[in-house]
């Protein structure tokens, strides 16, 4: 599975996956936190508060881009 597939699977466990990867994931904050934690576990990374801009963790595509950027850093 590529990064987007993994992110999509994580989101599907916790929320409704939007029709396309660019669309916003519509969840309340407590579920968004679960998504963040699941991404940390799946990709072995730590998300900091500074990482959490409004754009990141908004959609499957933005989360996948963040993961790849973080892993490349």
């Amino acid at each position: 599975m590529d990064t987007r597939d993994t992110v999509r699977a994580i989101v599907a466990e916790l929320a409704t996956v939007p029709d396309d990867d660019e669309s916003p994931i519509d969840v309340e904050s407590l579920v968004r936190i679960q998504i963040i934690e699941a991404v940390e576990d799946a990709f072995d990374l730590i998300v900091s508060a500074d990482d959490l801009t409004p754009e990141r963790f908004a959609s499957v595509a933005s989360i996948a881009a963040f993961v790849e950027e973080k892993n490349d850093a």
Partner: peptide, 14 residues
């Protein structure tokens, strides 16, 4: 109001 819930969550731990 807690619109920035995830950020608060991470900030609190940090």
């Amino acid at each position: 109001r807690m619109d920035a819930g995830p950020k608060v969550y991470l900030k609190a731990v940090e």
